[in-house]
Write a protein that binds this DNA or RNA. Sequence first.
DNA 1: AAATCCCTTAGGACATAACCGAATTTCGCA
DNA 2: TGCGAAATTCGGTTATGTCCTAAGGGATTT
Lengths: 215, 215
Amino acid sequence: MNAIVNTRVPFEILTSLAPQLDVPNDGRPVPLSFFHAGSEIYAQGEKVASHYQIEFGAVRIYRLLADGRRQITAFHLAGEMFGFEADLAHHFFAEAIVTTGLRTFRPVAGLDRSRELLPLALRCMVRAQEHLLVVGRQTAIERIAAFLIDMADRQGELTQIELPMSRQDIGDYLGLTIETVSRVLSRLRDRGVLKFHGLRSLEIRKPETLRSLCE
Amino acid sequence: MNAIVNTRVPFEILTSLAPQLDVPNDGRPVPLSFFHAGSEIYAQGEKVASHYQIEFGAVRIYRLLADGRRQITAFHLAGEMFGFEADLAHHFFAEAIVTTGLRTFRPVAGLDRSRELLPLALRCMVRAQEHLLVVGRQTAIERIAAFLIDMADRQGELTQIELPMSRQDIGDYLGLTIETVSRVLSRLRDRGVLKFHGLRSLEIRKPETLRSLCE
DNA sequence: AAATCCCTTAGGACATAACCGAATTTCGCA
DNA sequence: TGCGAAATTCGGTTATGTCCTAAGGGATTT
């Protein structure tokens, strides 16, 4: 996985880094594009033009109900790929959570990528299905615990976690309100399970307690 | 889609039908196997040996928590394929809901099926992600409405629905208890939206009302 | 046709998490 | 370092859905 995770680098500096990051792929340079925090990468209903690999930063994939309720179906971190769809149109929205650099892969006519794409799609599928168990059948504290363990695993660091997303994002991912997310995190802090260094940086002090919470 | 949906045919009769149903595929006959209601097709942790197409009947894919809570991640009906996994082991359980006939596809060494499998895997992925929105952000009545509309769409018939699964199955699919499922269905019946012909056979009397419930 | 069993429905008490309003903290920016 | 806006946290109240118990209904078996 990429070493640069969820940093808040000013946009100007990023642009100057572009030439170094823009390494060739399959003999052809793949363009690297930048997205400010909160900016849209693609929208639901849009035609699928390419898929993406995250060079640095983080992305949220989500869907909206008519009254504004939002479900985030996935977070993607540095090194991961996203943007696959079942047909020609996007079924979800994708937004940069923080300043994010993406490598864009456009499909090449006549070139069959299904052999490489299949394992990635399968992994996405299993992840979504496993997340269903969390959202459908676990309590608030179990959901938060599962989320923190997942984030820790994906960031490599076992005890130190950087959260690129807001409490609202976490709530919309876990099917909880922002208040419940905040309350549960505070309770875990008070119990000595977590220690915060700022709002979005934390340390797991009792990994075994956290793990026992999601059964 | 196959015409035979969710019928309760005695096992003996099914066996006698086997020769007719066992049509060749790729010049080689694909074996058809039968499963009684409730019998296991594969278990979580088992090595993936093949994937399956449903000739008739219905299948539930699920996962369990240590204390017995269950989340059904998908129902599969006649004509559909299932059993794909991200690696060599099954991440979920699969069970026949009613008496079910399956066509089993074993991977052939040296034969790359990813081109055919990718669209199926992507469809499964999108379906799971869309289901996340239902389970994570919708109310009980909205979930039931979405479920009924999905079942109607997949069975071809627009107003007549046969439910192969129990109320418990529906609850475990939608993240609700059996009582809530029952209560909501009764309320929809009392409101004249649904009309039941037995417990597992129903008619949508007001499709537009149902549709307006999931926004 | 009767009996049994299991699934389903119903009703009430309870609990978890949502909702509402407000105080507090954090972080970007000067 | 200090200011201000935004995000987060906190407390109280409410509602939705769960839990528990019991009654009802349908299907299968004999």
